[in-house]
Design a protein around this nucleic acid. Structure first.
Lengths: 334, 334
DNA sequence: ACTACCCGCGAAACCGCTTTCACGAAGTCT
DNA sequence: AGACTTCGTGAAAGCGGTTTCGCGGGTAGT
C-alpha cells in the first residue's frame, strides 16, 4: 500500500512563493491577504490538488469539524425509521457545511459516563441529542459551553435550543377533524407519557375537546406506550368500558393500526362505526386497511432544522427553538 | 465558558516522575516498560483523570480511531429501518473497541467526489459501505489500502470482505415452505433486480422450484422493486395472467403486504386460496392481516458482523466474508 | 576480564496546520 | 519632516501526542 503523498503547506508555500502562514490565511478565508498572493496560493492549491488535513487542522485550531449525534438509548430506537430519517436530515445539512456526523448510540446514563467524557473532551464541536430520557447530562454539559441541540422538547425548561414537531397543533387538528366528522365520544390513546411528545399530543387532544365545551369522560384517555400491542389493548378496553365510543385519536400510527385491527375483530366498522386518527404518517398508515387518516410530520425537515440550529450556533449566532408544522392527511379511517 | 483544563502528557510525566515517552508507552500497552514505572504512570493517570486527546493522537500516529459508514444514496435509504438497525450494530461493535462511527449519507457517485477524497485523506481508518450501487469507488479505494467492508454482496467479485444475509438460503426455505404447504403454482415477485440481494433471492426461489422437477411458467416471475406499490401491481397482473396461482414468494415483506391486500380486494382468501411468504420479518409482517409468514434476517447481527470484520482488518488479521443465517417465521399467511 | 548484546528509558524530532508576534513599508497626522 | 498608525507578511512557537535514536547499565559469551 502506497499512500498517495499528500502535499502539505510547506509544498504549497514553496510553489506559491509565500510563507505557510499566508497559505493558512488564504485557505481560511482571511481577507487581509493581498489578492495577487491569494491567487498564487489558490493556483498552487488547485494545481497540486491540495486538501487540508483535517486532523492537523483540528489539533492546531481546537475545532474538529465533527458533530456528535447522541441517541440516548440502545439499538431499538435506531431501528425506528423516524430517527434514521432525522439523522439523515442532520447529516445532510452538516456535510453541506463541511462538518461530519459522528454517531453515538448508547444509553447516556450518568453525567460521568463514556459519552459524557467524549463530549467534554473537545473531540467534537457540538452535540445533537435524540430521545433524551433525562436532562441531567445536557444540563451538566451546558456549563462546558459545548454547543448543543435537542431533538424533541426537553423535559425541563433549559435554555438549550431544540427542534420539535408541532405535537400540540397536530393533535389538536386530528381531534378537531374527528369532531368535525361528527364524532361525539372521542377517546385518546397516548404515547409513553414519560415523553414530552406524548404529553403535548395529549394536550392538543384535550384542547380540542375542551373547545366543544365538554370534558373527556373518565376512561376515555388511555395511557399507551407507542406500541402496536398497547394500541390493541386499549382499543379492547375502550370497547368494554365505552361501547359507544365513536372516535379514537391515537398518539402514533402504530397504535392506531392496532386499534383498527381490534375494532374490526370485534365487529366495528372503521370508519362507519368508529373513526380513527393516527400520528406520524408512517408507512403503516398507508398499508393498514382502511388506510389511516393521520397527522404527518416532516421528519427530514426536523433533522435539517436540528442541523441548521447547530450550524448557527457554531457561527456564534444565537438561536431559537424551531417547531416544524404538521399536516392532517385524510385517508379512509376518519 | 471555562473549558476544564485537561491534563497532558507533560503533567502526567511530571507526576509520575518519568518521561513523556514512557507515558505514551504505558498508555499504548507497550510491554517493555518496567511494571513499577508503568504502575506509577497508571496511578497518575487515574488520579488526574487523564484522557488521551484523540485528535493529537491521530495526528501523530496517523490513526484517527474513526470508521466511516458510507451510505451510497440519499435520505430515502436511511428511512428504511433496515439500515438504521445495521448501523446501530456496527456502531456498537466499533465503540466497544474504542472506535467511533462517522456517518456519510451521500450518493457516492464518482471516484473523485467529496466522499472519495475524504476516505482517501486518511481521516478515517476504514470504511463500511451500505447500498453500493457500483463497485467502482470501492475498487479504486482498494488500491489505497484503506480497510473496507461491504454490507451486501458486491456486484463483481472483489476480494473485499463483505457481510450479507443468506438471501439464497432464505428464499429457498420460503419457497420450499410454500411447496410443502401444497402450493402447485408459485409465483415470485422479485426486488429491484439491480441489487444482488434480489438476484440471490430469485435464485433461491428458482432452486426450490427446480427441485420439484418443474420450471416456473412464463410470467410467474415478476420484477418488482421492493415497494408496496410494486407488490400490489404484480399481484394484480398475476391474477390476470395466472388466475390459478396459489402461492407467492415476495422478495420483501412490503411487497408481500401489497400482494395480500390486492388478493383480498379481488376476492381471494389468504392463505386458503393463495399462500404468501415475504422476506425480512419487518414490522409490517406482524401488522398485516393475516400476519405474514416470512424469512427473518438478523439485522443487528449483520451490522455487528460488519463491525467485527472491520476490527479484524484493523488488527491485521485477514478476513473472510460473513453470511448470516435466516429463519423461517411461520405466521398466518402461508 | 574484555568485547558484544540486549533492555529500559529519556531527549528530541516530528505529524501538518494555526496563530501570535514583531518587523518593515506605506500612509496619516501635526 | 518626524512621530505614530496601519497593513501585509513571515518566522516561529505551539497544539498534544508518537516514535526514532542512542545512551548507560546489566547480562552473556569466550
Amino acid at each position: 500500500m502506497v499512500p498517495a503523498p499528500r502535499p502539505t503547506y510547506s509544498v504549497i508555500a514553496k510553489a506559491a512563493g509565500v510563507s505557510e502562514a499566508t497559505v493558512s490565511r488564504v485557505l481560511n478565508g482571511d481577507e487581509s491577504v493581498h489578492p495577487d498572493r491569494a491567487k498564487r496560493v489558490q493556483d498552487a492549491v488547485d494545481k497540486l490538488g491540495y486538501r487540508k488535513n483535517r486532523v492537523a487542522s483540528a489539533l492546531a485550531s481546537g475545532r474538529s469539524g465533527l458533530i456528535a449525534v447522541v441517541i440516548d438509548d440502545d439499538l431499538s430506537v435506531f431501528s425506528d425509521p423516524f430517527w434514521g430519517t432525522v439523522t439523515s436530515g442532520v447529516s445532510r445539512i452538516l456535510s453541506e457545511n463541511g462538518i461530519h456526523t459522528v454517531l453515538m448510540v448508547s444509553p447516556v446514563g450518568s453525567i460521568d459516563g463514556g459519552v459524557a467524557h467524549y463530549l467534554k473532551s473537545g473531540e467534537v464541536d457540538g452535540a445533537i441529542f435524540f430521545v433524551l430520557h433525562s436532562d441531567a447530562l445536557v444540563n451538566n454539559l451546558k456549563k462546558s459551553g459545548l454547543p448543543m441541540v435537542i431533538a424533541g422538547t426537553p423535559h425541563s425548561s433549559l435554555d438549550i435550543p431544540f427542534v420539535d414537531t408541532d405535537n400540540f397543533g397536530g393533535a389538536y387538528a386530528g381531534t378537531k377533524h374527528l369532531i368535525n366528522q361528527g364524532c361525539k365520544k372521542i377517546a385518546c390513546i397516548t404515547g409513553d407519557i414519560g415523553t414530552t411528545a406524548a404529553k403535548q399530543r395529549l394536550d392538543g387532544y384535550l384542547q380540542a375537546f375542551r373547545e366543544t365545551g365538554g370534558i373527556p369522560a373518565k376512561g376515555l384517555i388511555c395511557e399507551g406506550d407507542y406500541s402496536l400491542e398497547s394500541g390493541m389493548h386499549h382499543a379492547r378496553m375502550l370497547l368494554e368500558t365505552h361501547p359507544d365510543v365513536d372516535g379514537i385519536f391515537a398518539s402514533n400510527d402504530l397504535m392506531a393500526a392496532g386499534a383498527v385491527t381490534v375494532l374490526q375483530d370485534l365487529g366495528r366498522l372503521v370508519p362507519e362505526d368508529v373513526k380513527v386518527v393516527g400520528f406520524d404518517d408512517a408507512l403503516i398508515a398507508q398499508t393498514t386497511r382502511p388506510a389511516l387518516t393521520t397527522i404527518r410530520q416532516d421528519v427530514v425537515a426536523l433533522g435539517e432544522a436540528a442541523g441548521s440550529l447547530m450550524i448557527a450556533q457554531l457561527n456564534g449566532e444565537d438561536v431559537k427553538p424551531i417547531i416544524t408544522p404538521t399536516e392532517l392527511i385524510i385517508r379512509a379511517s376518519a
